[in-house]
Amino acid sequence: MIPAAFDYIRPASLEEACRVLAEADAAGDDVKVLAGGQSLLPLLRLRLAYPAALVDLGRLPEPRGVEDRGDHVFVGALTTHDEVLRSGVVREQVPLLALATATVADPAVRHRGTFGGSMVHADPAGDLPAVALALDCVFVVRSSEGEREIPASEFFVDYLESALGPGEVLLGVRVPKLGPGWGFHYEKFHRTAQAWAIVGVAAAVRRDGGTIGEARIALTNMGPTPVRARATEAALRGLSPAPVGGAGDGARDQVRDACGQADSGTSPPADLHAKPDYRRHLARVLTYRAVRAATG
């Protein structure tokens, strides 16, 4: 199919982009930001979106790239998924991001699609928002008024809706380094290799001696936004990863019990591929698998 007509603006700088977006908003124009376009173009082609204009940030020299900033890694919004995957800094310092990015779409889409675009698109079935939520990332946004920071817990507002205000663009995301003792896993469950996640689980778990010191778990596609599995996180704290009562049938797997609460507080959707009760079940099973994998 063929997109409906739109105007095209290619600002020369981020400042200009912010100004253009603010003006469009003031004029009541429906303007969309184009980065890699890998989510937007299919929507335009199916005529599910009719923007008056696209503001193409795809050629701006910044914000792009991955930077090690001591206690966190800063990922520029225009960094492509492919660049994220190739980054040694990402792999070594924030491996959960690498694990999840490797499951995003396919190689050709990852060459074009951007890290920031995936975040701002705020699709709860996307793989990266859950990572940002699990790691308590901080979103740095800019407008003509200046910069502000939005914690991940406030960034994903609703289905396909982020906290970006009028005239604001995403500069990038501060991804905290969690330091030694942490293990990571992203568990994605989908019907075919190129299908969206029915459910995904982003898990970061810190082992404290023989017990779980802290767990951070966020779920993909279990509601209109990514959600933290807070009850499970709390229940896991202080548990021994090994089954209680030794091996064998009599052993009680406390970690599994804790993960049985993974779906609490979620409101999973019903769609072609799964009904809510199945998604809840998957969230519990996959959280257990993700935690097990993250505790190695």
Binding site: L46, R191, T192, A193, Q194, A195, W196, L272
Partner: peptide
């Protein structure tokens, strides 16, 4: 109506 909904197998499947 689309290939995102009507799933045919990929090489990886």
């Amino acid at each position: 109506t689309t290939m995102a909904d009507y799933l045919i197998p990929t090489a990886a499947d």
